[in-house]
């Protein structure tokens, strides 16, 4: 299971990085989104992979899942979401002002 999860995170990061290095701001936004998915998963799994253990201290439960990464990842998701929304707005404005989706605001000469 650990191998699947880490490989999944690795693939997400690789795909995110590839897209981030593309010259159009649309791909960059997608790349950053994939990267933030990967990062959120990483933080979440930093609390270890354990099944059937609630994040609360209940008698009789099979151990306790670490509740802190869940709180951290929630914060990270909210911040990442807000930032991506702002980035999309900014990319649209750049496109509106420079008439191209190229990240430099002009096509290659």
């Amino acid at each position: 299971m650990e191998l699947v999860v880490s490989a999944g995170i690795g693939v997400l990061v690789a795909a995110g990085l590839y897209l981030m290095l593309r010259p159009t701001s649309f791909s960059v936004v997608l790349g950053l989104t994939l990267l933030s998915y990967a990062v959120n998963a990483l933080i979440f799994f930093a609390g270890r992979l354990n099944a059937e253990s609630p994040p609360l201290a209940i008698g009789g439960a099979n151990g306790i899942a670490d509740p802190l990464p869940q709180a951290l990842v929630l914060t990270a998701i909210v911040i990442g979401f807000g930032m991506t929304a702002y980035l999309v707005a900014l990319a649209l404005r750049t496109k509106g002002e420079s008439k191209t989706d190229h990240v430099d605001g002009r096509e290659e000469a």
Partner: peptide
Amino acid sequence: VVLNLAGSALFLIALGLIYG
């Protein structure tokens, strides 16, 4: 913005590893 978002992602990776 793009550069700093990438920076924030790295920051979170570091935090995840430190917490882990």
